Simulated scan of single mutants.
Amino acid sequence: MQPDVMLVAGMGLVVLSLPAILSAWADRRAPRIGTLLLLGGGGLILWSVRSKEGGYAWADLPDVFYGVVGQILN
């Protein structure tokens, strides 16, 4: 898997984990699934940053995101 795709997938998992964690806390349940999503997304982000030579800058993130979405849609 390409580092850019891993980064976007990790960001997606992290974003999806937040409502799951908040919902579990509101219902006074343990946030198991949300935590797994957060750890998986964080792991993918870390793996992608370490896989890409030179890493990513904050200014690169929109270009990476739109590039991956463009690859998926084409």
Results as ranks from 00 to 15, higher is better:
Leu44Ile: 00
Leu61Pro: 03
Gln2Trp: 10
Glu53Gly: 11
Ala59Tyr: 08
Leu37Cys: 07
Gly54Ser: 08
Ala59Trp: 10
Leu61Thr: 01
Val14Ala: 13
Leu39Arg: 08
Gln71Leu: 12
Ala26Arg: 14
Leu13Gln: 10
Val8Asp: 02
Tyr66Ala: 09
Leu37Val: 05
Leu36Arg: 11
Gly43Ile: 09
Leu61Ser: 00
Arg28Met: 14
Pro19Phe: 04
Gly54Asp: 07
Val15Tyr: 07
Met1Trp: 12
Gly10His: 02
Phe65Leu: 12
Gln71Pro: 06
Ser51Pro: 02
Pro19Ala: 03
Val64Asp: 03
Gly10Asn: 02
Asp63Tyr: 05
Val68Trp: 05
Leu13Ile: 08
Met1Ile: 13
Gly42Lys: 02
Ala57Asp: 14
Leu73Ala: 12
Ser51Glu: 08
Gly67Glu: 03
Pro3Ser: 15
Pro3Arg: 05
Gly41Asp: 00
Leu13Ser: 10
Gln71Cys: 08
Val14Gly: 06
Ser23Phe: 09
Ser17Thr: 04
Leu38Arg: 10
Ile45Leu: 04
Trp58Phe: 13
Ala57Pro: 04
Arg29Cys: 06
Phe65Ile: 09
Phe65Trp: 12
Asp60Gln: 04
Leu38Asn: 10
Ala59Glu: 15
Ser23Met: 09
Asp4Phe: 02
Val64Glu: 01
Asp60Lys: 00
Ile72His: 08
Gly10Thr: 01
Asp4Pro: 01
Ser23Glu: 11
Ala26Asn: 11
Ala57Gly: 14
Leu39Pro: 04
Leu37Asp: 02
Arg29Ile: 06
Arg32Trp: 15
Ser48Asp: 01
Val15Asp: 05
Gly55Ser: 05
Leu38Lys: 10
Val68Lys: 06
Pro31Ile: 04
Val14Asn: 10
Leu46Thr: 05
Ala20Arg: 12
Ala20Gln: 14
Leu73Met: 09
Arg32Cys: 12
Gln2Ile: 09
Leu73Thr: 11
Leu44Trp: 01
Asn74Phe: 13
Val69Cys: 11
Gly70Phe: 10
Pro3Ala: 15
Val68Asn: 05
Ile45Pro: 00
Leu61Glu: 01
Gly55Pro: 02
Phe65Glu: 03
